[in-house]
Computed example of a mutant assay.
Amino acid sequence: MEHSYNKKNKNILVRQIEKQDLELLRSWRNNPENCKYLTPIPHITEEAQKKWYTEYLKDKEQIIFAIEETEKLGRCVGSIALYNFKDSSVEVGKIMVGDPDAHGLHVALHALEAVMEVAVQHLGIKRFYLHVFKNNLPALITYKRAGFKKTSEEIKQNGEVEYRMEKDTY
């Protein structure tokens, strides 16, 4: 969905994805190392990425943000999304810090906090939830630091354990 939500938090800025971000996002999503914990998808062509972006701008069911690291790198380093809106809850995820220079700078944590603040202030969200694989330790640490608590776990078809984590805003 096209939006104008921007939020600065410490060393990051979350903002609308723009056309100039598409090639970076595509290259990161096509890198298996960046996507080992994301839903598997086929290789993304330039044409497919442009088509996705056109459709995304019309999609009222999700809000995707570009993540810029503003202090050391001064560039787009990843993305994060809000989706599955229902009543006053939303799923937060599809977090990818694709720029290896941004690793270790707490980009995901600060982006997560910023996106949740936007959702509370502008969208009336009272509960956040997410899904994370048990073996994705960097993500688990980030989510715990952001105040998420494990509420359930499920064994997926591939045998991996996936946690559902939630955070209330009140």
Rank of each mutant, 00 (worst) to 15 (best):
S88K: 14
I125D: 07
I80F: 04
G93I: 05
A139V: 15
G104A: 05
I125H: 09
A102I: 07
E117V: 07
Y53P: 03
S89V: 06
Y83T: 05
E71Y: 05
E18S: 11
Y143S: 00
V77Q: 03
L82F: 08
D59A: 09
I67P: 05
N30Q: 06
V97H: 04
A111V: 09
G124N: 13
L57S: 09
G124T: 14
K72A: 12
M96Q: 06
E113Q: 11
K156I: 12
I141Q: 08
Y163V: 01
A102Y: 02
I80H: 04
I125S: 06
N136R: 01
K144R: 13
I64A: 04
V107G: 02
V14C: 08
I80T: 09
L38A: 12
I63F: 03
F133V: 02
G98W: 10
S152Q: 11
V107L: 05
N30P: 10
K126I: 09
D99M: 04
D101H: 04
K156M: 13
A81R: 04
G159W: 12
Q157F: 07
P42T: 14
L25H: 12
T54G: 01
Q16A: 13
N6D: 09
T39I: 13
K126P: 01
P100Q: 03
N135P: 00
I80Q: 07
K72E: 09
A108Y: 06
D59C: 08
A108R: 07
K50E: 14
A66D: 11
F128W: 08
G159H: 10
H122C: 10
I63C: 02
E162Q: 12
P32E: 14
Y143K: 01
K60R: 11
R15G: 10
V92Y: 01
D59W: 09
H43V: 15
V14L: 10
L22K: 07
D59Y: 11
E154V: 12
G74T: 14
S4P: 02
E47M: 12
N34G: 04
L123W: 09
C76D: 01
A146P: 02
K126F: 08
L73M: 10
R145K: 14
G104K: 06
H106D: 08
Y83D: 01
E166A: 08
L105H: 05
E46Q: 15
A48W: 04
E71W: 03
L38T: 12
E47H: 11
K60A: 05
E113F: 01
R145P: 00
Q16I: 11
D101L: 07
I64H: 03
Q121E: 15
F133R: 03
A48C: 01
Q121I: 02
D101E: 08
D101Q: 06
C76I: 13
I155R: 14
A111C: 12
A108D: 06
E153M: 08
I63S: 03
L24V: 05
Q62Y: 04
S88Y: 12
V118I: 15
Y83E: 03
E46V: 15
G147R: 02
I63Q: 02
A108L: 10
V14N: 06
K134P: 00
T39N: 12
T169Q: 13
M1S: 11
I17N: 07
D21R: 15
D21H: 14
E166Q: 14
K144N: 00
G124Y: 15
K51L: 07
H122V: 06
Y37M: 08
N11V: 02
D99Y: 05
V132E: 04
S89N: 07
M165W: 08
N30E: 06
K94G: 00
M96F: 06
L112V: 02
